[in-house]
């Protein structure tokens, strides 16, 4: 085996290990795999839906977001998050502010890197969450490997103060713009889930485009039923 491949293989093993050092159980891990790219002038509205079915019932979470690029390589996005609990009550649950920074020019180095910072506050309770994430993407011909590693801090009087780690990965085959099949992995908070996804993009005039992501994730680490269906629609203008 060539030293180059050893380096690549070693890195691909190390990245998820570093970010899964601390995992505790109190939330939903399946969300979205972030790409480390930002376009100047980018503005977007986004809607995400996650339906998680476990033996104790079904939990639905939705979030609506508005984002815009504030610099050539930095974009910010604000979200309102609503959740329906197992007793069928749907309500505003939290707000979130997110900043994504494209650190290197796409394709310039061996891989592309970005940084994501998030701050979330629960609507009705004193519970806060801050996260910093490292975003990675590497092309292998028509395949794109994307990995996100997050370190999360939770605090407040309504939650236990703790550190968490999360890891997300996606291998996407860029078959055609409207149809890009993928395999996704989500790990963290005692959860390891894997499943198929489809990503697509339809372009209108100018910068206007519609992106969608549909994924189905099955929990692997527990013997109980735990399936998540996620849908994200993003309109850029």
């Amino acid at each position: 085996m060539k030293p180059y491949y050893k380096l690549v293989t070693g890195f691909l093993y190390l990245f998820p290990m570093v970010f899964s050092l601390a995992s505790y159980a109190d939330g939903m891990v399946v969300d979205k795999v972030y790409h480390p790219y930002v376009l100047p002038f980018e503005r977007e509205v986004e809607w995400r839906m996650l339906s998680r079915k476990t033996q104790s019932g079904n939990v639905l979470a939705q979030r609506a977001g508005l984002g815009w690029a504030i610099a050539e390589t930095v974009t910010v996005e604000g979200y309102a998050i609503g959740e329906r609990d197992t007793e069928d009550n749907f309500d505003l649950a939290a707000y979130e502010l997110e900043m994504r920074w494209q650190v290197v020019e796409q394709g310039r180095y061996w891989a592309d890197w970005g940084i994501l910072v998030e701050l979330e506050k629960q609507h009705k309770t004193s519970a806060y969450e801050a996260a910093i994430g490292l975003l990675f993407e590497k092309e292998f011909g028509k395949l794109s490997l994307t990995m996100n590693g997050f370190v999360v801090r939770e605090w407040g009087s309504a939650v236990e103060n703790e550190w968490e780690g999360e890891f997300r990965a996606q291998i996407r085959y860029r078959y055609m713009s409207e149809f890009q099949p993928a395999i996704e992995l989500y790990s963290g908070e005692d959860f390891i889930g894997v499943g198929p996804a489809v990503i697509g993009l339809y372009r209108f005039q100018g910068q206007k485009q519609l992106k969608w992501e549909i994924g189905f994730v099955t929990e692997l680490s527990q013997s109980v039923n735990d399936h998540s269906f996620r849908l994200a629609v993003e309109y850029e203008f």
């Binding site: 790219y37 376009l39 100047p40 002038f41 050539e72 020019e105 796409q106 394709g107 310039r108 092309e139 794109s144 860029r174 055609m176 713009s177």
Partner: peptide
């Protein structure tokens, strides 16, 4: 999509895109 690149080309400016 073929090159997997998107880049804003600012007016009166040279932009660099790394491909391949």
């Amino acid at each position: 999509f073929d090159l997997n690149r998107e880049k804003v080309l600012f007016p009166r400016r040279k932009s660099v895109i790394y491909i391949g």
